[in-house]
């Protein structure tokens, strides 16, 4: 498989100016991670584990203190490539209010396209496409500030989609959405991924991570676990010890295993759990 993002032995620190003398808080400690083209990677970690910092390294918002990050072959330190890098990797942040700039929904989605000089007819096409993708097309003439948090987040995602980036990095995009909103965003993500877009999803929802192709767990600025969701979530004790969790169905089956019931320890989806419990409980 083709490497798309290469993170090579990257460290990163924030300087804390509140302290006198200023202190250094190292949040990434020699992280090495490759992400292949077309992968769907979920990144888990407790608050402060370094996952958002890692995300910001992927389109040059943060530059490594040491080590290098390559995106589609471009070093994120290369200032001449800055615009190319940002066009390649789109970012969606947690709080939609910080990402909306215009007073009309469709203008907001068109903002970046206008900036990079896309043809007006093409802008129209892409804006409509992106708004339909996130299910907000009927709101195209509304004022973003009158929408709910979840709706605003979908506008922010549409703005990134309209740029047609090769990779989308999302930092807890569903934190403010209701269950339907979350489901829609997850559907959008899966759909985009199946069309070849590389997706990096930072999330606190274990059920969302379980749907990724690969799960990376961060702890204390390092990568603690990296593998298929089934492999990662079977390590329930380790995950809980670093402030994380496993999907509820995993928690349930692990509890049953501890009570002596014979079940596999890598059940992470609702369907699988229902099937296994049915086999267990059905009448002979």
């Amino acid at each position: 498989m083709e490497k798309f993002i290469e993170i090579k032995d990257v460290s990163f620190s924030y300087i804390n100016d509140y302290d006198d003398p200023p202190t250094k808080n190292t949040v990434l400690k020699g992280v090495t991670l490759d992400i292949n083209k077309g992968e769907f990677v979920a990144v888990l970690g407790h608050n402060g584990s370094g996952k958002s910092t890692l995300a910001k390294l992927l389109n040059s918002i943060n530059l490594p203190e040491s080590g290098d990050v390559f995106v589609d072959g471009m070093n994120t330190r290369d200032e001449d490539k800055l615009y190319d890098i940002r066009r390649t990797v789109g970012m969606v942040f947690q709080n939609p209010d910080n990402q909306i700039v215009a007073t009309v929904v469709e203008e907001d989605v068109a903002f970046a396209l206008e900036n990079i000089g896309v043809e007006p007819s093409e802008i129209r096409k892409r804006v409509d496409w992106a708004l339909k993708k996130v299910g907000m097309y009927e709101y195209r003439e509304h004022a973003p500030h009158k929408l709910s948090g979840g709706q605003k987040q979908r506008i922010a995602i549409a703005g990134v989609l309209a740029m047609q980036p090769k990779c989308i990095v999302m930092d807890e995009p569903t934190a403010m959405l209701d269950p339907i909103g979350r489901r829609e965003i997850m559907q959008t993500i899966t759909e985009l991924n199946s069309e070849g877009v590389t997706v990096v999803l930072i999330t606190h929802y274990m059920e969302e991570a379980a749907r990724a192709g690969r799960v990376v767990v961060m702890d204390d600025g390092k990568i603690l676990l990296d593998g298929a969701p089934k492999k990662v979530f079977s390590q329930a004790e380790l995950l809980k010890s670093v402030g994380l969790d496993v999907p509820d169905v995993t928690d349930l089956t692990h509890g049953l295993i501890r009570a002596g019931i014979d079940l596999p320890d890598d059940i992470i989806s609702e369907d699988e759990c229902v099937e296994r419990l049915y086999q267990l409980l059905k009448k002979e």
């Binding site: 999907p247 509890g255 609702e270 419990l277 409980l281 059905k282 009448k283």
Partner: peptide, 27 residues
């Protein structure tokens, strides 16, 4: 999620009266 799992089990013919909404209860 656990409530959904047990609703589905009931629909599949497993018999119980309880409404399940916690993992401990489910176990």
């Amino acid at each position: 999620q656990v409530t959904r799992v047990f609703d589905r089990l009931r629909a599949m013919g497993i018999e119980f009266d309880d409404e399940v909404f916690s993992i401990d209860y489910a176990k």
